[in-house]
Design a binder for these strands. Structure first.
Length: 417
RNA sequence: CGGGGUGUGGCGCAGUUGGCUAGCGCGCCGCGUUUGGGACGCGGAGGUCGGAGGUUCAAGUCCUCUCACCCCGACCA
């Protein structure tokens, strides 16, 4: 991507109507646009980050045999009525509207019921099991109050997956596979060391569920963690959980965190409630065992923006950065332009994401933008680097520059994941 | 939903006790000088002050209603 062709601009000032650091930075750097409270548009650079996160999640979901699909955002009331969740008293975040003929419909805040209802059409026998489906979908939730920038909006992107099984053992086994897949996801997007598998409230169906919580000051949850034993407990179930885990409350560290993922083992409760059965090997009707697994895609982006930034701007992990390289061309002599164009073409051909700052602006502005945008590696091509026949490289996380020749540069960029 | 706060060019802000053609910085356009950490000079364009109603000779400044945004709380699979 050439910067000169990018329509977004960075700003020297932060928006006055945001206090959440993630939103301030993302807007200042031109990654997102705020449409209204809790509703954000994702601009080219922000979309790149989102796509990179999605691709990591997609790879891991595919690795546990998840099949990707896309459900609808307009939903039928009757599907939700079977579980009582159409009721505004039960679910208070519904957006509801009507068709021209007055038929009432809901806007998707979740897809659990519709997706199970649909799966019923295809899954009738134990021979059809197990099966696991997932999607990346926009969720619409009429929250009383939006806050924390993109971390808690009224419209957000989520990956949700549902697995159907013939037995509790099979579900348990799969549940653990997904747990591991989730752990890999959070490692790969760069928040592994601060993300904990957490005991949390299981809602109506199970005593505990597992949440993936990332330490983040802008989060909404309180966690009690033990780094050594790798234990984390949500405050809401603290007393029950410590008892069950056999640890003492006093050895736990209290931290503020944001929920980035959640996995549920529903057993057969949900499908029994919805009346969804399969025919088992004995020829009898049997309720499905069901698992549900969510990851907040836009929330991960917000958490990372929030956690990894400094006074100069964003600092993206390499795996999800909008580009791996910020190529700053200083000067516009033929030699310089040619060298920069050439490196840009070469890296692009090698599938290494580059934001090529080919603008006719002063060096200071390019450096400031490179920092603000948080691209992991800055490569400068200037008169100096041409005469010394190397590239000036600086990692976003570090302050020292290093000089690499062509081969060293390519090698360095290749090992960056 | 309760409490508090804020709405003035694209962005960030200032506008005294109401008073004449509504300012400043950034950004934007033109010309010139610059070119390794967001340059400088000169010349420009752009707002009717969130919206509606009212008080007044006169309203960005006062009153009423309304909309939006932010924060705290409540809420939050």
């Amino acid at each position: 991507m050439k910067y000169s062709q990018l329509f977004t601009k960075t700003s020297k000032t932060v928006p006055s109507d945001e206090t959440a650091r993630n939103a301030q930075l993302l807007i200042q750097a031109g990654f997102v646009h705020k449409e209204m409270a809790g509703v954000y548009a994702y601009l080219p650079l922000g979309l790149k980050v989102l796509e990179h996160i999605k691709n990591i999640v997609r790879e891991e979901m595919n690795a546990v045999n998840g099949q990707e699909l896309i459900m609808t955002n307009l939903q039928r009331p009757d599907v939700w009525q079977t579980t009582t969740r159409w009721d505004d008293e039960i679910v208070d975040i519904w957006f509801k509207t009507k068709l021209k003929d007055d038929t009432e419909i809901g806007l998707a805040w979740s897809h659990e019921e519709p997706i199970l209802n649909m799966m019923q059409q295809f899954v009738q026998s134990y021979k059809d099991l197990p099966v696991s489906v997932y999607q990346f979908q926009t969720k619409l939730r009429n929250e009383l109050r939006a806050k924390s920038g993109i971390m808690r909006g009224r419209e957000f992107l989520m990956k949700d997956m549902y697995s159907l099984h013939a037995s509790a053992e099979d579900l348990d086994n799969y549940y653990n596979q997904v747990k591991d897949a989730y752990t890999r996801v959070f490692e790969r997007v760069g928040i592994g060391s601060d993300t904990f598998l957490t005991f949390a409230s299981g809602g109506a169906f199970t005593k505990f569920s597992h949440e993936f919580q990332t330490i983040c000051a802008a989060g909404e949850d309180i966690l009690y963690i033990h780094r050594g034993k790798n234990i984390a407990v949500n405050e809401e179930v603290l007393d029950d959980a410590v008892q069950e885990l056999g640890v003492d409350k006093s050895e736990l560290e209290k931290v503020v965190s944001a929920e980035v993922g959640n996995i549920f083992n529903f057993g057969t409760d949900k499908s029994a409630q919805m009346g969804i059965y399969f025919t088992n090997a004995e020829g009898h009707q049997s309720p499905l065992y069901l698992g549900s697994y969510g990851i907040g895609i836009t929330r991960i982006m917000g958490v990372i923006a929030e956690k990894y930034s400094d006074d100069k701007g964003l600092v993206w992990p390499e795996s999800i950065a909008p580009a791996r390289v910020y190529l700053a061309r200083l000067g516009d002599t033929d030699e310089i332009v040619q060298a920069a164009d050439q490196l840009y073409a070469e890296l692009t051909a090698a599938n290494i994401g580059v934001l090529y700052d080919d603008r006719d602006v002063r060096p200071g502005e390019k450096f400031a933008d490179a920092d603000l945008l948080g691209i992991p590696m800055r490569v400068v091509i200037s008169e100096k680097t041409i005469s010394s026949n190397n590239y000036e490289c600086k990692r976003r996380r570090e302050s020292e520059v290093s000089f690499l020749n062509h081969q060293q540069l390519i090698e360095t960029l290749s090992v960056m994941s």
